[in-house]
Design a protein around this nucleic acid. Sequence first.
DNA 1: TGTACATCAGTGAACGCGCGTTCACTGATGTAC
DNA 2: TGTACATCAGTGAACGCGCGTTCACTGATGTAC
Lengths: 222, 222
Amino acid sequence: MRSTYHHGDLAVALLDAGDELLKERGLPGFTLRECARRAGVSHAAPKHHFGGVRGLLTAIAARGFERLTRELRLRLEQAGDDLHSQFLATSTAYYAFAQRYSEHFRIMFRGDLLDDSDDLKSAALETFTVLTNVIRRQRGEPERDAPYLDEDAGRGIGSGKQVLDDILIGWCHIHGYAHLRLEGQFFMINENQHHEMLDTAAKRLSDLMQRDDESGGETDER
Amino acid sequence: MRSTYHHGDLAVALLDAGDELLKERGLPGFTLRECARRAGVSHAAPKHHFGGVRGLLTAIAARGFERLTRELRLRLEQAGDDLHSQFLATSTAYYAFAQRYSEHFRIMFRGDLLDDSDDLKSAALETFTVLTNVIRRQRGEPERDAPYLDEDAGRGIGSGKQVLDDILIGWCHIHGYAHLRLEGQFFMINENQHHEMLDTAAKRLSDLMQRDDESGGETDER
DNA sequence: TGTACATCAGTGAACGCGCGTTCACTGATGTAC
DNA sequence: TGTACATCAGTGAACGCGCGTTCACTGATGTAC
């Protein structure tokens, strides 16, 4: 295989091997030794680059968020400007990612399996930023580079309660759909109905957000 | 410990030990041998009752669904009859379960880790039935013992498109919220805000469902 | 009521397995002078 | 341009570990007669 003693780009080769392995065998089959094997290197070599299994897995999860962010951006650019289209594009991209990288999707959200790395955190935040900006654009607010600013005290996310509500309702729905369908809970819905479901949900949720928006925001009169 | 050669109720003892172990150490620390140890029995004994690790894990997951069903029913009975209250009760109970039995919650939905057992399937279906009946009651339709009937061709769940839409929107939201918060993605929301979030979401989603209901059902005019 | 026997539940030693980690090493690379 | 040397990346053998599974076994239980 390799002609030189040094690999050249082992870190990337290990990440690629890990991606593949995770897809093929899931978390239970994910081992340092097998990643090293696939990268064509002795099983002690990865230590120099990732410290251990958790380090490698963390880096793979971070790449997962980066990929998800990329795909969300792509679909959002291609979609129409109205909230319904943007919402549909988001859920379609999110779900497609969960299907294609299902084990990645599962571990990406599991802090207990991963190291507490800055790369991971900022990759996850960037994904979340893309989601929040869908709502911000819709409300004519400026987009941001981060979902969360220090000055947004109390409420966590700036620009008031309604924005946060919309973001969370949207994200929860999209995530819940992706997760439940991924795990086979929607056995009664076939592939054709699936697209219609996503579209209808996008329509109804965007209606909800726009109606409440026009009516002045606060609907909570208790 | 035990004075007789036979345990007496080893199956249940193993399930209890497994529940505890799963909570303490998660899936990676879940082993047949440790379950046997905690049940005070040799490590080969569980074979007679569950066949192997997967069998035991499957039975534990089934009990998880049963527990979730019980808690949903309890909270729903205590709650008011309006959709907002019912919805809030559902999401509160669902989320509380996910927090308390987090590793159970994670594996319950993972068919790839579990055997294809009838007990598991019917326990999961019962949970789903409780969720669907929240919507059915609200629409003045009779409750059912199953979410899915054979005669509900095409659409999967009977009584038309709108019912299915409402069920899925509600379930996805609740599940997405529980899962994302469980995995620490809502770091910007503290415990106080959390209750308010759930309440607001319940209010807005029940509004959505009732408005669309009164307006005659179909809002999808494309 | 007693006896014989099949069945069932649990034992404990043994097996092979692949894992992560450690360690002394070696080949390649980069840099100071 | 050459040499010395530190640093870095990868090797391969060895270690201990706990796992799941298998197996011949034994003690308890239930049942037929």
